[in-house]
């Protein structure tokens, strides 16, 4: 049994069986406070995206007849592929964490790079989509629909971009030998953020793109 008063001992006590918990020092709640903080952050992010989606729906309902709108610009087959790519990045993310907790550094690096590449592909698709929409005549200030659409999807794209930066930071930490099964919680937190970005897109794809216009 490890002395609770000795965080260092607690961090080093678990044997590297490949199935151990990402270790963290004992806390007053018995839970990782970093993880509690991440879930609180994600809870607050629900409010941000809830508000943005609400504003979009409001804006779309107030779009004057005859102005450029969703039916004029959306390319559902293209966005479906982008959505599938982002969805699959959640799979590669959990496989990266799984590999790290088993102590498989090479597997972790492969899956984390795959996740970043899939995220990058999604962002590239979004940039292409924005460019096409702009060329079709939908700018940020063209009408209320354009402002709400670009704000919502732009905020989401910014979140994905930040996620990619975090993924690459984890890769660099791994290459420098700073990631191991013992501090896999860092990657777990990045994964929570990444999956959250994915579930937000699940909502956006359905509500913004697929709902009958």
């Amino acid at each position: 049994m490890t002395d609770v008063a000795d965080p260092e001992a607690a961090m080093t006590a678990a044997p590297a069986t490949g199935h151990e918990t990402p270790a963290h020092p004992p806390t007053t709640t018995g839970m990782s406070h970093n993880k509690v903080a991440m879930w609180l952050f994600l809870g607050s992010e629900c409010l941000l995206f809830g508000a943005l989606i609400s504003v979009y729906m409001f804006a779309k309902s107030r779009l004057p007849a005859g102005e450029i709108g969703p039916n004029d610009v959306f390319d559902i087959p293209f966005t479906s592929v982008s959505s599938f790519v982002l969805l699959m990045s959640s799979l590669t993310m959990v496989l990266a964490l799984s590999a790290l907790t088993r102590g498989e550094e090479r597997g972790f690096r492969i899956w984390i790079v795959a996740t970043a590449l899939l995220g990058g592909t999604f962002i590239a698709g979004q940039v292409y989509e924005f460019t096409v929409f702009y060329n079709l005549g939908l700018g940020y200030t063209t009408n209320i629909f354009g402002s709400a659409f670009y704000t919502l999807t732009g905020f989401h794209g910014a979140h994905v971009t930040i996620g990619i930066v975090m993924l690459m930071s984890a890769l660099v930490a791994s290459l420098r030998g700073r990631l191991s099964p013992r501090n896999a919680e860092t990657v777990e937190l990045i994964g929570l953020y990444w999956h959250f970005v994915d579930i937000v897109w699940i909502l956006i794809f359905t509500i913004i793109y697929l709902f009958p216009q």
Partner: peptide, 28 residues
């Protein structure tokens, strides 16, 4: 439930997240 491990993690995390979702739905 599966990728974010809420199915397996502390119920506190689920409560925190559900609170955020309920508040977001309230905004809507």
């Amino acid at each position: 439930a599966w990728f974010m491990h809420l199915k397996f993690d502390s119920v506190l995390f689920k409560r925190i997240f559900v609170a955020g979702i309920v508040l977001a739905l309230g905004v809507y």
